[in-house]
Design a protein around this nucleic acid. Sequence first.
DNA 1: CCGACCAATATGCGAGCGATATACCGCGGG
DNA 2: CCCGCGGTATATCGCTCGCATATTGGTCGG
Lengths: 225, 225
Amino acid sequence: MATPVMALVETADPARSQSEEAYLRIRERIVSLDMRPGSVVNEGRLREELKIGRTPIREALQRLARENLVRSIPHRGTFVTDVNITDLARITEVRVVLEAHAARLAAERLSGADRKCFTDLLQVLEHGPSVDQRELMRLDQQIHRQIYIAARNPFLESTLERYFNLSLRLWYLVLDRDVSLREALEEHMELLRAILAGDQDRAEQSMRRHVTGFEREIRKVLVER
Amino acid sequence: MATPVMALVETADPARSQSEEAYLRIRERIVSLDMRPGSVVNEGRLREELKIGRTPIREALQRLARENLVRSIPHRGTFVTDVNITDLARITEVRVVLEAHAARLAAERLSGADRKCFTDLLQVLEHGPSVDQRELMRLDQQIHRQIYIAARNPFLESTLERYFNLSLRLWYLVLDRDVSLREALEEHMELLRAILAGDQDRAEQSMRRHVTGFEREIRKVLVER
DNA sequence: CCGACCAATATGCGAGCGATATACCGCGGG
DNA sequence: CCCGCGGTATATCGCTCGCATATTGGTCGG
């Protein structure tokens, strides 16, 4: 099945610098587990694979290190950050409060354009979207990002973007397991309805449930490994 | 006048890289308003003043740009980020929820070593510390940082550290104005007592009041300019 | 007066050099 | 014979330096 939504992410902005290019491509690889957690990051290899010089790669890795996606040890090497239950808990701890607050703000500050986006997304959800997990992941991503935008707070947006990528990698980890997504869908619809209704408390609570529910699902799969 | 506490910041860790060194020193300059908001950042000048090469400076500026302390426009120049009421509101919006949650976690996870730090800080507060604003700023900084540590969440800690620096610059802006610090002191004591008592709800609420109160004070001075 | 070209400036990127920490290997002691 | 230790080899990294490039502001010509 074709995934038209995919294009949104794959389309590259040609005007971005090589540093940015390197950062985005390496991040994509790490988040999608194309580069395994714990594995070494070979700078020379990346250089030839991405056809990019050393400086941009280095800058990208520094940026990824600050975002906790890689860990650099001087004169020893750079490694993809390992995943563990503790980090999952710590990340979720922050995400719960931030995402919930973003949802509240989105409900409070909803503008016309945002309203249209959310109604569109809600329609997709109500028409029973594909059961393909990757498609659902994209959808979830769109919903969250739209909420960040609707919250009208650039600081919050960039911080949440960072945490979302960390969480996204965890989701990729459990992709082929049977995680219950039925209730996640319900949560999403409830969340969107609350935002569209301008009900701040309900939006906040819905998001809180959604993120904690997400953590519970990931945790279940993570502990049995 | 002598500020003995100042030495805490000036003492440099010799083992840190030049990038780190440049980052910290430039950040200090920006936060303390030694480099004025809106002014251009001259790379060559920094290079000779800090006696540091071009690459470390560049890396430091990139990092500062991601933290919203400078803004880089390709082939045009780098500028110290301007301050305005909108940003103050946006930053506070995030800080309120994060700091409050950190206070809650600190109250929940308080360990022996942390307890000692907090009691020491509380004692300083109760003995009526200096009325020197810079001294009080240092104290406030210590309290917040200690809470970040006590929250036992490295992700939360680094995120809050970033937002704290943004706020700190705003504080510097109003340094020589007559901001009421009496109630800030009361807030601090109440906050520390709540944490030491392990009262999560009270700690969270105290911190919430403290941060919103901080914003109100800054705002008052900021609007009358 | 307006438009286009040109010099100046600042950045993006690439390659290399010296430094440093690790790993391996051979040697000596137990 | 095994274990520990020291020296050398190697790989990676941080940093310096130089070239290519893009944007700006001013100036010259129409």
